[in-house]
Design a protein around this nucleic acid. Structure first.
Length: 314
RNA sequence: GGCGAGGUAGCUCAGUUGGUAGAGCAGCGGACUGAAAAUCCGCGUGUCGCCGGUUCGAUCCCGGCCCUUGCCA
């Protein structure tokens, strides 16, 4: 079974820079666990690794689809399997891991180690129920779910969440069963998670959004829209891109778009920390923005050595 | 300077026919098996601009002052 090092963290904690440094030093590949890095052409707003960085390290999980194509956790897992195969071939038998999984999408880490059921989603059915929800509200979804299975509602952790109701309906209709629990039993493998003090994180987020505008976020969106007039739902809501489109449509001023991006990024970072805090076996690495990168990398290495690499059941 | 309008939560504002106040946003906390940068849930004490007056009781009524803003000069 392939082994991988892991490095997670909220957005703007510096995990990508640390990962690049470590992958170069160890001569291993990187698997990005980031739901937005998969979109080709969405570079500035996702803080995608540069061409120079990608020339020095083999990356998986980056530029997998165009912004008009749908994507899913299952599709990402197939890419993860490719990465594992590559790393398995690179590692001389029984040697150290040849792969570093890095990112901020908690669900991807969980799917990677705990596994998903193999069946995929049914996008047409999903669209149908989404339209129904928009027209008639959550109650209609609850009623529909109860009609399919009177006990189903009680199994949901979040019965007023339309996403989950739709998912449950879709699963019942297409394969007559509810979304199951994780394929592999717990507990989760330890996950190395980078963390910055909240105030420092907020400062870095603001600075990062400023630099995205300076690096041409708006121009990137303008040209992407020429090539792909209609984006998939998840690409269209990406932080920075949704607001950039609103700016180009005249719905937001530049200042409003900027502020909105900063706010949504902060909210994302908070949700990411909550996920890592409660949904994983986090090994926290608390850093300070003044820490030299080499020292942070050293601490990550120590954590890895102490807790061991993560087996990938792919 | 004159005449209006307004000063209430970090922000935008509502409200109390006098019994010390509540929405949205932000923030904080939480959930989460396939769209996850998504989606959903929970958390509201704040000199009600300041100083007096009336009143059992004032954020609300009265007077003065300060500040913001519009029009006129």
């Amino acid at each position: 079974m392939t082994l991988a090092w892991t490095l997670a963290g909220a957005t703007a904690t510096g995990k990508s820079a640390a990962a690049q440094l470590l992958a170069e030093r160890l001569g291993i590949a990187i698997l990005s666990a980031d739901a937005m890095l998969v979109y080709r052409g969405m570079d500035v707003g996702t803080a995608k690794p540069s061409a120079a960085e990608r020339a020095r390290v083999t990356y998986f999980g980056v530029d997998l689809v165009t912004p008009d194509q749908p994507f899913s956790t299952g599709a990402w897992l197939r890419e993860a399997a490719r990465a594992a195969a590559h790393a398995g071939a690179a590692a001389s038998s029984g040697a150290a891991p040849a792969l570093l999984t890095v990112g901020g999408t908690g669900l991807y880490f969980k799917a990677l180690t705990r596994g998903l059921d193999s069946e995929v989603a049914d996008p047409a059915r999903r669209a149908h129920w989404q339209a129904r929800f928009e027209a008639e509200g959550v109650e209609a979804l609850r009623d529909a779910l109860a009609a399919l299975d009177p006990h189903a509602l009680a199994t949901l952790s979040d019965p007023s969440n339309p996403r989950r109701l739709i998912r449950a309906i879709e699963q019942l209709e297409s394969r007559r069963r509810l979304p199951q629990s994780w394929k592999q039993p717990g507990p989760d493998a330890p996950l190395t998670v980078l963390r910055l003090p909240r105030e420092q994180l907020h400062r870095r987020i603001r600075a990062r959004v400023e630099s995205m505008f300076a690096q041409g976020l708006v121009e990137e969106i303008r040209s992407l829209r020429r090539r792909y007039p209609v984006w998939s739902a998840s690409a269209a809501q990406a932080i920075g891109y949704a607001e950039g489109c609103a700016l180009l449509n005249g719905a937001l001023s530049q200042a409003e778009a900027f502020e909105r991006i900063v706010i949504r990024t902060r909210q994302l970072a908070k949700r990411q920390e909550t996920w890592f805090r409660h949904q994983t076996q986090a090994v926290w690495i608390d850093t300070d923005e003044r820490d030299p990168p080499g020292r942070t990398a050293e601490r990550i290495l120590n954590a890895w050595r102490q807790h061991g690499a993560t087996p990938l059941p792919l």
